[in-house]
Design a protein around this nucleic acid. Structure first.
Length: 362
DNA sequence: TCTGGGGTCCTAGGACCC
DNA sequence: TCTGGGGTCCTAGGACCC
């Protein structure tokens, strides 16, 4: 989906179409520590980007309309999208709240483009939501093609056109190549995907390990088979809650109180999802933006707030203890995370899966 | 020009086991 | 008395994605 949160909001505020709109908390008073969640293309034309600090966005687009985020609306809208997509593809794998991979078998690039156009039109006419499409025999290339098609485009890359399509793109166009890897590659003068094909493989391996070989294959237009297929959907592996203080603090009682609040809230969410947890991690981001974390594996799966609150408070105290009398930095953000999640009635589903797998083997 | 909140995956060292 | 090679689990940290 294109500028998804903004697009979802514009359905309710059609008079704002064609203007600079930003989804995020408008910086005001003390509460000015947020970032932009989504910006309309008119706002992007002014230099506003998602993840940009809201105060910077405010400077670039002083007249933009700000809309506070409403995640339940975006979840609801995502379900509508999902339902519509089901009419067009047998297999759909949601990749995030605003992205999905669709699998379809068609005869020619022209047919694929027409198929995508039909879906695009339906999304626009029935849900008033703009979307872009990328298509390829390789799912990772489809994603890159989709990014290249934004906003509102369709890009079909036939299998034998893969290398030619990828070649001129910057390495950062590849999902998984972020700022750090881009910078490391830049040091050996690898900037485009074509450069990846030409670079000495030994130098790439020194930089990236085994990942170098799969990158090289992708760049040569021959991605590994697992990059051609849709990823498997699976249950959540972890649930977490992050909160940034309005002002950095060293007040231990304030910090611990917040940790306990967060742990309680997190546990209630897990309970409503029917999930048990067996791992707890607390992370502190200090005023200098570095992070420290401490985790603990519980001896058994737990449900409810009691264990999560107790463990996260203990872990937080230990982190603070370690900092005290050392650098004494103030705390900016807290994170409480529950991992090793299992569905309620823990092992039973696995036995059922085993039984049905055995039955289908016959 | 100050940097949110929710996730996934990978690496690496140490403890421990056979 | 000093020792190999394989494995798993736990913990911490980091890169990356939307």
């Amino acid at each position: 989906m294109d500028a998804y949160y903004v697009s979802a909001e514009l359905r309710d505020r059609p008079e704002l179409r064609g203007t600079a709109v930003i989804v995020g908390h408008k910086p005001e008073g003390a509460a000015n520590r947020g970032v932009v969640l989504s910006a309309s293309y008119e706002a992007r034309a002014l230099g506003v980007r998602s993840a940009m600090p809201t105060v910077s966005a405010m400077r670039r687009a002083p007249d933009a309309t700000w809309i506070p985020p409403d995640f339940s609306k975006y979840e609801r809208t995502a379900r509508e999208i999902r339902k519509l997509l089901e009419r067009w593809a047998d297999r759909i794998v949601p990749l995030s709240i605003d992205e999905a991979a669709l699998e379809v078998e068609l005869g020619s690039p022209e047919e694929v483009a027409a198929w995508a156009r039909d879906i695009q039109t339906a999304l626009q006419e029935e849900l008033h939501l703009p979307a872009s499409f990328g298509a390829s025999p390789y799912s990772i290339v489809a994603k890159i093609a989709c990014d290249a098609a934004k906003p509102g485009g369709i890009r079909v890359v036939a299998g034998d056109a893969t290398q030619a399509f990828l070649g001129p793109l910057p390495v950062s166009a590849i999902p998984g190549i972020g700022p750090k890897t881009t910078e490391r590659l830049d040091r050996i003068e690898v900037r485009t995907i074509d450069d990846l094909v030409r670079a000495p493989i030994a130098a790439l391996r020194r930089l990236l390990g085994e990942y170098a070989d799969s990158l090289r294959a992708l760049a040569a237009g021959r991605p590994a088979p697992e990059l051609a297929t849709l990823p498997e959907g699976s249950g959540p592996r972890q649930r977490s809650l992050d909160r940034t203080f309005d002002r950095d603090t060293r007040e231990e009682s304030e910090i611990l109180q917040r940790v306990e609040q967060m742990a309680t809230e997190l546990a209630e969410g897990l309970r409503s999802e029917g999930l048990h947890y067996q791992n707890v991690v607390v992370r502190i981001r200090w005023e200098d933006f570095t992070q420290l974390q401490k985790g603990h594996q519980l001896s058994a799966a737990h449900e409810g707030p009691e264990a999560l609150v107790r463990e996260s408070a203990r872990l937080a105290r230990e982190l603070l203890e370690r900092e005290r009398g050392h650098r004494n930095r103030a705390v900016r953000r807290l994170s409480v995370s529950a991992g090793e999640l299992t569905a309620r009635r823990g092992r039973q589903p696995m036995l059922e899966e085993f039984a049905s797998a055995a039955a289908s083997d016959k």
